[in-house]
Amino acid sequence: MNAGDPILVADKLTIRHGQLTAVHDVSLSVAGGELFAVVGANGAGKSTLLRTLAGLHKPTAGTITLAGEDITRLSPDRRVRRGISLVPEGRRLFLSMTVEENLLVGGANGRPGSWTADRVFELFPWMRSRYKEQTAHLSGGEQQVVAIGRALVANPRVLLLDEISLGLAPVVVKRIYETLPALLGTDMAVLVVEQDVAQAMRVAGRFQCLLEGRTTLEGKPSDYTAEQVEAAYFGFGSAVESWSG
């Protein structure tokens, strides 16, 4: 497989929660080495989409393929072994465990590869000295970083990041986002879901905007003006911070 070929492809996904259809007929494809952002307002269906890619929801229609293999019906743990890892919204660390144990759990059931605890420490040096600490004692930002590390050590082909900015100070969010390009070194694809459009647009190579479960805009951030994305995001004009400056 060549770099640039799509690794993860979602084709015409429709996802229902009971009576409510959260995602209508959405398709996307992500290539290795690419940072792809799904943006949208609260309730646009982006977290549902991401959780479906990870296997927590079953779509009512459509297919998901990973490197050509249909994984639509696979359970989340089987997807991890094939190379999809989700950093869930709200971090969801095992708070009764130490940093070390969280990373061990993450690494134990993933794929073999170059991401080890040591490589995570190179990226986030503070973690080495707090390896034996219970994660409940870490700050929100530190927990978010451990949650990313826990997913990385599974050596995913596709890393899914769900609202990593949620509940964190802007300076912390900025620092976490600055490390994302470092993850793309090999052929890993990173798919972020983010309410903070400006933040996501600064780092993403391509993006897709969802509104009420439907795709309203897709392409490269540089292809569109802030006003165009605003309109796609809210369904009408409003103020979104510019990401180009």
Binding site: A54, G55, L56, S75, P76, D77, V80, R81, S85, L86, P88, R92, F94, L95, S96, M97, E101, L104, V105, G106, A108, N109, G110, R150, A151, A154
Partner: peptide, 24 residues
């Protein structure tokens, strides 16, 4: 052990344990 950590992970948060590749 790995099994022990899996048991604790499932006990603490089963859906997240599945997301970490643990066969529940």
């Amino acid at each position: 052990t790995k099994l022990g950590r899996s048991i604790r992970a499932v006990a603490e948060d089963a859906p997240t344990a599945a997301l970490m590749g643990i066969d529940i």
